[in-house]
């Protein structure tokens, strides 16, 4: 449980990749996303996955991305089984499942290496309205808080004799009630309090509030972007020109 929750929490890591401008990271993520989506042979998907993992190593985040991949492996298995069941060939089913993993891991590269702050700046730069940016970033920030809440609630109920690890399926579902009720109540109360606290600190008082940080592309960012675009173009060229068996 703890292990799964850890996947959602942003951790500051000292790596050259983390230091890049969030827009550079977004570009790289999007490129990977596109080439996973367009891949039509297992060997291509495998190469995409390998490159994503290479970037993950560079960003010192292999564990985090690996965890994301493991977590989505279940759903990938599901995709594989469903396709197989509906008469899609073995190889194609495998391709779909792997492609799903490639898509998930390429998007997670951005989210794992971008802090909520950077996310906020990026969204603003993209011209997303301020309220929506705020709502989105707050939601992202609150995930770990709510996770922490959930663990404390589980601890409190275990201390009242609730066996969470035992029993059949129905019993386990019923055991979730003492966990979920306080969790939902707390979250609702907290969001109400947050709204009041924000208003008390003049949120929305001026239409254009001061912004302390400006995104700036360094020379390194520009060269990384260039290299990644070249890589992207090369991959697209190979997709179009080089015939590989599916």
């Amino acid at each position: 449980m703890h292990w799964v929750a850890g996947g959602f929490v942003f951790r500051r890591v000292e790596s050259p990749f983390h230091k890049l401008d969030p827009r550079t990271k977004l570009l790289i993520s999007l490129e990977f996303f596109a080439i996973s989506l367009l891949a039509f042979a297992i060997i291509q998907v495998a190469i995409v996955l390998a490159s994503v993992l290479f970037v993950a190593v560079y960003a010192k985040s292999l564990k985090r991305i690996g965890r994301t991949i493991l977590m989505s492996a279940g759903f990938a298995g599901f995709i594989f089984a469903i396709n197989l069941l509906f008469g899609v060939g073995l190889v194609s089913s495998l391709l779909y499942a792997l492609r799903f993993l490639a898509i998930v891991s390429s998007t997670s590269i951005f989210f794992v290496t971008t802090s909520p702050d950077e996310l906020e700046h990026t969204m603003k730069w993209l011209g997303v309205p301020r309220d929506i940016v705020f709502a989105f970033v707050t939601a992202v920030r609150f995930i770990p808080v709510i996770m922490l809440d959930a663990f404390q609630i589980m601890d409190a109920q275990k201390s009242r004799g609730l066996e969470l690890e035992k029993g059949n399926f129905v019993k386990r579902i019923r055991n979730m009630v003492p966990i979920l009720v306080p969790l939902v109540v707390n979250s609702v109360v907290r969001s109400g309090e947050l709204a009041e606290a924000m208003e008390s600190r003049a949120y929305g008082a001026t239409p254009k509030p001061t912004s302390l940080y400006k995104l700036r592309l360094s020379r390194k960012d520009k060269s990384v972007m260039l290299v990644s675009l070249l890589f992207f173009a090369a991959v697209l060229y190979i997709y179009l020109r080089v015939k590989v068996p599916v």
Binding site: K158, R160, E163, K166, N186
Partner: peptide, 22 residues
Amino acid sequence: RSTAQLSRKVGIAFQNPDHQLF
């Protein structure tokens, strides 16, 4: 032992009531 088993002997009242009332 599980926490549920140990709790029969050792009862902990936590600081935050909102974490347990349901």
